[in-house]
Amino acid sequence: MKWSELSIHTTQEAVEPVSYILHEAGASGVVIEDPQDLVKVWEDKFGEMYDLNPNDYPADGVILKAYLPVNSFLGETVEEIKQSINNLMLYDIDLGRNTVEISEVNEEEWATAWKKYYKPVKVSERITITPTWEEYQPVETDELIIELDPGMAFGTGTHPTTVMCMQALEKYLKPADNVIDVGTGTGVLSIASALLGAEQVRAYDLDEVAVKSAKLNVKLNKVHEKISVEQNNLLDNVAGEADVIVGNLLAEIILRFIDDAYKSVKTGGYYITSGIIKGKRDLVKQSLEQVGFVIEETLQMEDWVAIIAKKK
């Protein structure tokens, strides 16, 4: 099959929402080339290893590369992507150059090239994420290993927003807790919850590709008896309460179902939410407090924020 590579020159602020738009449009993979990674002082407390080539990065801004099959609908799909990206300006998101270039790539090259950048990463005190094709031996006796195959679903589990969610789960989730994972993607937060001792996890995603990917990863990690994965829009028609609700989503989406999140979490339980750009932090915090949540803790990694809210 022939594939088209969409190369979008934008800003770091726009990476998450533009990636989401590409995923929703059917992109079969997203590569992020951010030159700030070349000058960043990387923490090594969890044993990460980095080998970055400056030739792979733009001189300014950020380039996102996404892949779409070449078919009769390609032109229409690209125009819809451009329009959706332009609409982000309505949310005061800086798009930078906002240019889109299209080229054709070989399927075999695309299908394997991105894997060389995806290596085992320790994301918290106990949790290490490793791709299924890498061999990894734990270095700590209490280390929890998550094997992940992103497939065509969004995320490898190593983005700052996901990492903060896992660090919060490690701190606040108690053994035998009941968890709801909203917008599960690859299922990594559900798997982390199960490995940390959750008794039951309900994972939801609107995208059927993500649901399939999450189900596969749940089975790969042998936690399918604890986790159920279903296609669903946020918390619509979800019955029953949970001790912990976790959602790694965009701020605009988080604001849509704060009332439902408050109703669905038990008294004394936690709502862990991330995917929030720094500029939207106060808006999300105020909205959480307005419905009755008490802000327990705010985490920040790079330009991203995670908020842990408690239902008193």
Rank of each mutant, 00 (worst) to 15 (best):
K2N: 15
S4Q: 14
L6C: 04
L6Y: 01
T11D: 03
Q12K: 13
E13N: 04
V18C: 00
V18Y: 00
S19W: 00
H23S: 11
H23V: 09
G26K: 08
S28R: 06
G29L: 07
V30A: 01
V30T: 02
P35R: 05
P35C: 04
V39G: 04
K40S: 08
W42F: 08
K45P: 05
E48A: 15
Y50T: 09
D51M: 12
D56I: 08
Y57H: 02
D60F: 11
Y67C: 01
V70Q: 05
V70F: 06
L74T: 07
L74A: 13
G75C: 08
T77C: 09
V78E: 06
E79R: 08
I85N: 04
N87P: 07
N87G: 15
L88E: 01
L90N: 12
Y91R: 10
L95C: 04
N98Y: 06
N98H: 06
N98S: 03
V100A: 04
I102A: 06
S103Q: 11
V105E: 02
V105R: 02
N106T: 14
N106E: 11
N106Y: 06
E108Q: 12
W114R: 03
K116T: 14
K116Q: 10
Y117K: 14
K122L: 02
I127P: 01
I127D: 01
I127H: 04
I127N: 05
I127G: 04
T130C: 02
P131F: 02
P131A: 07
W133R: 03
E135G: 13
E135H: 06
Q137G: 14
E140V: 09
T141I: 14
E143A: 12
L144E: 01
I145K: 00
I145P: 01
M152D: 08
M152S: 12
T156D: 02
C165R: 05
K171I: 15
K174R: 15
P175Y: 12
V179C: 03
V179L: 03
I180Q: 15
G183C: 09
T186G: 06
S193W: 11
A198H: 07
V201T: 10
V201W: 09
K212Q: 12
S213P: 09
K215D: 07
K219I: 15
L220K: 14
N233S: 10
V238L: 13
V238D: 05
E241N: 11
D243G: 03
V244M: 05
V246G: 04
G247S: 14
G247W: 07
I254K: 06
L255G: 11
L255I: 09
F257K: 15
D259C: 10
K263P: 11
K266R: 10
T267Y: 12
G268H: 01
I272C: 00
I276V: 03
K278C: 05
L283Q: 05
Q286W: 08
Q286M: 14
S287P: 04
S287L: 09
V291T: 10
G292A: 01
G292K: 02
F293Q: 04
E296P: 10
E296T: 13
T298N: 03
Q300V: 12
M301E: 13
E302M: 08
D303W: 07
D303P: 10
W304F: 14
W304L: 07
V305G: 02
A309E: 05
K310N: 10
K312H: 15
